[in-house]
């Protein structure tokens, strides 16, 4: 399973999002620190879920970071996050 697919699955399971975007932006960071051949190092994600209702930005991002802690510790170098409740 690719890291992208794993991220999608974990976010779907955790937040039942009404909208979910997971983009591998590794190509745009070729040659930068953290970049590896084959990509899957830099991701941009957008999650729309009722789970974020009433949460501050920091709280919402923490929820995402916790779900993806394993990926962040294993190869995912950068994660741009956008969360919305609706």
């Amino acid at each position: 399973m690719t890291t992208k697919a794993t991220i999608e699955e974990k976010l779907t399971r955790a937040f039942s999002p009404t909208e979910l975007g997971v983009i591998d932006e590794s190509d745009r960071h070729a040659g930068h620190s953290g970049w590896k051949e084959g990509g899957e190092t830099h991701f941009r994600i957008e999650v729309v879920s009722k789970a974020f209702a009433g949460k501050s930005r920091v709280e919402a991002h923490r929820m995402v970071n916790e779900v993806l802690a394993e990926e962040l510790n294993n190869g995912v170098h950068a994660l741009a996050i956008k969360t919305r409740a609706e």
Binding site: R57, V58, H61, R62, N65, A69, L72, N73, A78, L79, A80, I81, K82
Partner: peptide
Amino acid sequence: SWPTIPQLYVKGEFVGGCDI
């Protein structure tokens, strides 16, 4: 307990990372 850098602090309080 924030896994990424940068991190901004104002008057001792964590404000957020780049996206925030």
